[in-house]
């Protein structure tokens, strides 16, 4: 992946920036230019908002067969997480026994290494989630 392609997404991947529709108030992550609810009425009215980082597991899978760059992580827990603000995202659940992950489990965002461009390439960082107390 080209380096600028990853840089462009840093605000959302490092700091969980999403967007809020200035017309209906719906919150989206990652940020959108057009609100799926309001369409054209939302154009130019999308505000940047930072998510709080708390959420719950909506569904999950333990991944055993993964692309080369995730080889060292497997088996790892992939999950869809519903954030407290209502939007959903896909990430990993870490610092947990995979067998202990459940639907409805509360989790919180943590800053982690996501992957890298080969052994000597750029390292990508972003959010993963760990169990929340």
């Amino acid at each position: 992946m080209a380096i600028p392609r990853f840089w462009r997404e840093i605000p959302s991947r490092y700091n969980l920036y999403g967007s809020k529709c200035g017309h209906c108030g719906t919150l989206d992550f990652p940020p959108r230019t057009v609100c799926p609810e309001c369409g054209r009425r939302s154009v130019g009215k999308m505000e940047r908002v930072k998510l709080g980082g708390k959420g719950t597991v909506v569904s999950y899978s333990v991944i055993h067969d993964a692309p080369a760059q995730y080889e060292m992580m497997k088996p790892y827990v992939l999950a869809i997480i519903e954030m407290a603000e209502g939007c959903r995202l896909t990430s990993q659940v870490i610092d947990v026994d995979p067998a202990a992950v459940k639907i409805g489990m509360p989790v919180e965002a943590a800053f982690r290494k996501l992957g890298s461009e080969g052994e000597a390439g750029v390292i990508h960082y972003g959010y993963k989630f760990r169990p929340a107390g």
Partner: peptide, 15 residues
């Protein structure tokens, strides 16, 4: 980018 494989996404539907 977050480690979602094609099978992993369908697995989450299954779960």
């Amino acid at each position: 980018v977050f480690g979602a494989t094609f099978a992993g996404l369908y697995a989450m539907m299954a779960r």
